[in-house]
Simulated scan of single mutants.
Amino acid sequence: MEIKKNPKSNLENYSKLFMQIGLVLALFITYVAIEKKTFDRQFGDLGDVVMNADLEEEIPITERIEPEIPKMPPPPTPEKIEIVEDEKEVEETIIETTETDETEAVEVEEIEEVEEAEEVIEDVPFTIIEDVPVFPGCKGNKAQLKACFNKKMKKHFNRKFNSDIAGDLGLSPGKKRIIMLFRIDETGNVVDVRAKAPHPRLQKEAIRIVKLLPKMKPGRQRGRPVGVKYTLPVGIMVE
């Protein structure tokens, strides 16, 4: 026979109610504990404590010493001012004027004009001239003009020299050296012709050949035409 339980005696139906009641009691106990008043513990009277007494410090009083200011000497006594009475005549200093009268003649020193001496450039050797003289027919730059000049001079000597003279002079066989020296002036003309040779006739022949040279374009130094010294050494064979 199965035992039947009474639904009212089943405590599980009241579990929610018990939980609510327990929660309310817990909150009430917590509230009472918070609202309970407490009092501070009292100690015996220790009397008044003065703190400022220990903090006071005695500061010594010092006397300020002012620096001594050097005494300045008194200002000098002004010179005695002489008072001139109205009746006393005072000498006036007359300043002569430097202006001249129109009627007076003024002497003017003559100003001599000094002509500046024109810089004279001496003759320049052919080897160091800036712009060499130009032999007729030569063209090109400075180096080409210089090489062409030397070539034209040797060609002129070989063409104009009379080789029969050397054979008639009775000179010993061999190579003979002739040096011709001349100057090409500022206008391009050949002047101051000289020659050195082993015989006077050879020297005369060399001078004749140089004088047959054509007029040239003069050499220039610093952009100005100048005289140019030229030396032409040549050799001839004597059989």
Results as ranks from 00 to 15, higher is better:
101 D>W: 12
140 G>L: 14
102 E>Q: 12
110 E>M: 06
131 D>S: 13
136 P>A: 11
148 C>D: 06
121 I>Y: 00
102 E>L: 10
134 V>I: 15
144 Q>T: 04
155 K>Y: 06
136 P>F: 12
135 F>N: 02
142 K>Y: 01
119 E>F: 01
152 K>D: 06
120 V>L: 08
146 K>Y: 13
95 I>F: 10
147 A>M: 08
160 K>P: 00
113 E>K: 13
159 R>A: 13
142 K>M: 03
111 I>A: 15
138 C>L: 10
138 C>S: 14
158 N>P: 01
125 P>T: 05
151 K>H: 03
131 D>Y: 09
135 F>A: 02
95 I>L: 10
96 E>I: 05
153 M>C: 10
142 K>T: 11
127 T>P: 00
124 V>H: 09
106 V>E: 03
116 E>T: 06
105 A>Q: 14
148 C>K: 04
148 C>F: 13
147 A>C: 02
138 C>P: 11
133 P>M: 10
138 C>G: 08
144 Q>G: 07
159 R>N: 11
124 V>P: 01
155 K>Q: 14
117 A>Q: 06
100 T>I: 08
159 R>M: 10
122 E>L: 09
133 P>G: 09
154 K>E: 12
95 I>P: 03
98 T>G: 14
162 N>T: 06
158 N>K: 15
149 F>C: 04
130 E>D: 14
123 D>A: 15
160 K>Q: 13
129 I>W: 11
104 E>F: 05
137 G>E: 05
103 T>H: 05
127 T>H: 14
152 K>I: 01
115 E>G: 09
126 F>Q: 04
118 E>R: 01
134 V>L: 14
146 K>I: 07
139 K>I: 15
135 F>I: 06
125 P>H: 04
151 K>F: 01
123 D>S: 15
139 K>F: 15
155 K>L: 10
120 V>W: 00
162 N>F: 04
99 E>A: 03
106 V>C: 02
117 A>N: 01
96 E>V: 04
99 E>P: 00
118 E>F: 00
102 E>N: 11
146 K>N: 13
142 K>V: 10
94 I>P: 10
102 E>G: 12
120 V>S: 01
161 F>L: 04
119 E>M: 03
150 N>L: 12
116 E>C: 00
116 E>D: 06
118 E>M: 01
115 E>K: 15
108 V>I: 15
126 F>M: 15
158 N>M: 15
153 M>N: 07
162 N>V: 05
120 V>Y: 02
136 P>I: 09
102 E>P: 07
125 P>K: 08
152 K>S: 11
149 F>E: 03
156 H>D: 03
127 T>W: 06
96 E>G: 02
126 F>E: 04
135 F>H: 00
